[in-house]
Design a protein around this nucleic acid. Sequence first.
DNA 1: TGCGGTTTATGACAGCGGTCATAATACTGA
DNA 2: TCAGTATTATGACCGCTGTCATAAACCGCA
Lengths: 223, 223
Amino acid sequence: MDAGRGTAEAGDGKGTGEGDGGAPRPRTYGPRERMVFSAAQLIRRDGVNATGMREVAVHAGAPRGSLQHYFPGGKQQLVDEAVAWSGRYAARRIGRFLAALPEPSPSALFAAMVGQWIREYETEGFGAGCPVAAATVDCAQSAESTRRSAAGAFATWNAPLADALTGFGVPAAQAPALALLMISTLEGALLIARAEGSTAPLETVARELGPLLDGCATGRDRT
Amino acid sequence: MDAGRGTAEAGDGKGTGEGDGGAPRPRTYGPRERMVFSAAQLIRRDGVNATGMREVAVHAGAPRGSLQHYFPGGKQQLVDEAVAWSGRYAARRIGRFLAALPEPSPSALFAAMVGQWIREYETEGFGAGCPVAAATVDCAQSAESTRRSAAGAFATWNAPLADALTGFGVPAAQAPALALLMISTLEGALLIARAEGSTAPLETVARELGPLLDGCATGRDRT
DNA sequence: TGCGGTTTATGACAGCGGTCATAATACTGA
DNA sequence: TCAGTATTATGACCGCTGTCATAAACCGCA
């Protein structure tokens, strides 16, 4: 899922430790948005409970006083919004993957999704995982609203994926299930890759699951 | 994966004394073991950072003073051992599933693994997930030893699964990869199921991935 | 210029976290 | 019985957390 990073649209961001004043901070985003963005970044690195509000403000280059102003619901609101934002981000990225596929197929799309993570891990290390997964692990039991937010994020992520699969010839009735399978497998492989500090699990699941996915696309309906 | 249930005295049965009709006399575990066990339970429920040492002692019915005595390495040591224990537990359970399969096949084994979670969620609610996943999310970045412990747990879990797959006719070269795919998918579906508060994701991945796994067992190729 | 709102600044607080220091107790073995 | 170790019992400490209360600064607008 990723919380987005650098690139053209996110601008500022990473490097929590080095909050140095080196890079000019494009003010294209307001403090509120930056705090949500930073929260997602920190959550996916350290988990929800290890991410402090003050830390979020610092990371976002936002004044601490803005926290209670923009998020009167406290930390829970901030976390919920960060999770929802991450879901939207992942969904948007599906569209971008789709547009960039040389030849459309379920396995190619899955490879693109996994490949994005492989590239991130190779270039930036295994410091961060999926923020929605982190929020689920940390809050599913303790914060009902966050749990719901995570469920919404997964659904938001699933929808465009399922649409893409139907476009590949997967029966409409099966597409959402297959999309869920892809997301599940990616999330799990992400976890294991982070634990092992290796991209091998990601590469493995892409290699193993990809052909099986394609089998569903050409199975009976596609012509 | 699961960390067993009930309070500290439950143990995990380990086959003896539970089904053999003898007196069920719960074998009593020492405070140390109970604390590791309780730590796993609490971690999988609230995550690592939200689980306090004092809380672990209380849950285990163990004296607080024993914490620093048995775990001079502090919380990190306790967490590491809880994670390692969980890995061993999951591995042991593969053997039990295998022995109980009516007709051996990859899909049946996967269904058993998933089914265990479905049953737990149906009877005890969605309060808890996989402790190894929780530890990975919370500690992969901050605690190197815990990250390694989680990697070890996944490996410990993978080994008997891969062995079982080769027993089902999966080529030995592919078995570990397929085992990884199964674990990844299960972990991811677990996450989503918890977020949604529904067992549907678990049922879905079992239904979708199962047949694909069997396709690999029939001596079919993988290129 | 003054006013009303949005936004930011600061400080305090109450609580809990892990960890340490120290002492008391229980138990084993001679 | 006693010595010595293993275990348990407390209490304190310091740092950090989320949250609140309050006031200052800012800014568009008359």
